[in-house]
Simulated assay, not measured.
Amino acid sequence: MKVHHIGIETNNIEKSRRFYEQLGFQMKDRMVLMGEELCFLTLENFTLELIVQKTEIAAANPHLCLEVTDLKEQAWAVQNGTAFEGPFSLENGWKTLFVEGPSGEMVELVQTKNTP
Rank of each mutant, 00 (worst) to 15 (best):
M1K: 12
K2N: 12
K2R: 11
H4Y: 10
H5Y: 09
I6H: 15
I6T: 12
I6P: 09
G7S: 15
G7Q: 12
I8V: 10
E9R: 14
E9V: 05
T10P: 04
T10R: 00
T10E: 02
N11A: 09
N11V: 06
N12V: 02
N12P: 05
I13R: 03
K15T: 04
K15M: 06
K15C: 05
S16N: 00
R17L: 08
R17Q: 15
R17N: 14
R18L: 06
Y20G: 01
E21W: 05
E21V: 04
E21K: 12
Q22P: 02
Q22G: 05
L23N: 03
G24R: 02
G24E: 06
F25L: 12
M27H: 10
K28F: 09
K28Q: 14
R30S: 12
M31E: 13
V32W: 05
L33E: 06
E36G: 03
E37W: 01
E37D: 07
C39I: 05
C39W: 04
F40E: 11
L41I: 08
T42K: 15
L43M: 13
N45Y: 07
N45F: 06
F46M: 13
T47L: 12
T47I: 12
T47Y: 07
L48V: 07
E49P: 02
L50I: 03
L50D: 00
I51V: 08
V52C: 05
V52H: 04
V52R: 01
Q53H: 07
K54S: 14
K54Y: 07
T55W: 05
T55K: 07
E56R: 13
E56N: 07
A58P: 04
A59I: 04
A59Y: 06
A60N: 13
N61C: 06
N61D: 08
P62F: 11
H63L: 01
C65F: 09
C65V: 12
L66I: 15
L66E: 04
L66R: 02
V68M: 02
V68I: 08
T69V: 11
T69G: 14
T69D: 12
T69A: 13
L71S: 01
K72R: 14
E73D: 14
A77E: 11
V78F: 10
Q79K: 15
N80E: 11
N80I: 04
G81K: 03
T82F: 04
T82E: 10
A83D: 01
A83L: 02
E85T: 07
E85P: 03
G86A: 12
F88K: 15
S89Y: 11
S89Q: 13
N92V: 12
N92Y: 13
N92R: 09
W94K: 13
L97Y: 00
F98L: 03
V99T: 01
E100M: 10
G101Q: 01
G101M: 02
P102K: 05
P102G: 04
G104T: 01
G104N: 06
G104M: 03
E105F: 08
M106D: 04
E108G: 01
E108C: 02
L109S: 00
L109R: 00
L109T: 00
V110I: 10
Q111R: 08
Q111K: 03
T112S: 09
K113G: 05
T115C: 13
